[in-house]
Nucleic acid binder design. Sequence first.
DNA 1: AATCAACCGCCC
DNA 2: GGCGGTTGAT
Length: 413
Amino acid sequence: MSLALFRSLPVSVVQVSLAAVLACGQSFRWTVIPLGSEEPPTHEYRLCLRDRVVCLRQTPEHFYYRAVYPDSQPTHDQVSTREKETVAWIKDYFQLDVDLTLLYQDWSTRDHHFATLQDRFGGIRILRQDPWENLISFVCSSNNNISRITKMVNSLCKEFSPPLLTLESPVADEKHAYHPFPPPSVLAVPEVSAKLRSLGFGYRAEFIQRTAQMLMEAHGTTSKPDAVREPGEIWLESLRKLTTQEARDELLKFHGVGRKVADCALLMSLDKKEVVPIDTHVYQLAVKYYGVKAPSKGKATMSNKIYDEVSAKLHSIWGEYAGWAHSVMFTSDLKSFSSYGLPTPSSSVSISTEEIIKEAVTDTLTKRKRLSDDTIEKTPRIAPQPAVSTTHDLVDTIKKRRRVVRVSGISTP
DNA sequence: AATCAACCGCCC
DNA sequence: GGCGGTTGAT
């Protein structure tokens, strides 16, 4: 598959880094295909929408995009319309009207710790996702990890949504079926929970089915046969027009949706850019870098009070786009211990390890120049040692290293 | 109003 | 023992 079938759109990698943004735990449905090329584009990214599969590649200054449809003989007018729609979708989904460089500047001024990260983790922004898919995806996220959430969401689509089309790999001689995200009406039927259980969803199975059912009961089972979206989906999207608290109150009514999941949906699909979702991980970061007091009883479950305090604190530090800044923080920590999302573990681990080593050295040097600063610098995450075989090995390596570093007194208490 | 165990499944 | 938590009961 040559680049000839793709069209280009001028988008700097400074504004959007597909490699980071599409694999950092916002959306769980993008497939990443390594192209085996040394020069960019190195990967192709694909997402199945309701009526088309969007394919993206990235070079330093451009997106290359195309969309694939089920029918093979579109009219001339269709081609033209679809082209416009795809471009419009890309601009909307990636929120290209938002200038990330201005935001990074602002955050760096407000937050010294952010400033130490901005160069290595550029192009990280919030996607503007479909609210229904976003909500259900994050219902899956409770007590869970990104790897498994991804598997669950994909099996959800495969099981409950017929394939829109099949598409060959650009490199290997193999075909892959692309399934849209199933609509509320499909997941609302009672038998769904048992099926989800059998698919390994655990206690989240009932949450998903009940949430879908609630949405159907509250906002109509009747959608016109030719309607693209169901009433429940349209209602969910209408929450964009409400205030943050009003929209949050609505989301919290659903089963499996607590404060954290609601906040993720508010930030990632309902335009609430100031919302900072607090998970255990972000909580740790807040304790480490932003003077939030550590949980008193070791690892107590996050109370509403603590949640509000931490979220408000980070909001006040980062400002109007605090939720966006949060995603940079979150992703920076993710990337430092995982090459998740890149389908060639060995090669990508070694690549990112190289980068990390380089940055770690830089950090160490920086830190020694400012030992008086009370800001805790990033500790060297990975020693210049042989590549690790798995993500977990990598995590363990980092954990051990952190302990060593702490004991040796390099890190500020 | 604030705490706390239980909850699925998968990995260490 | 722990995951990017939520629920229902105290």
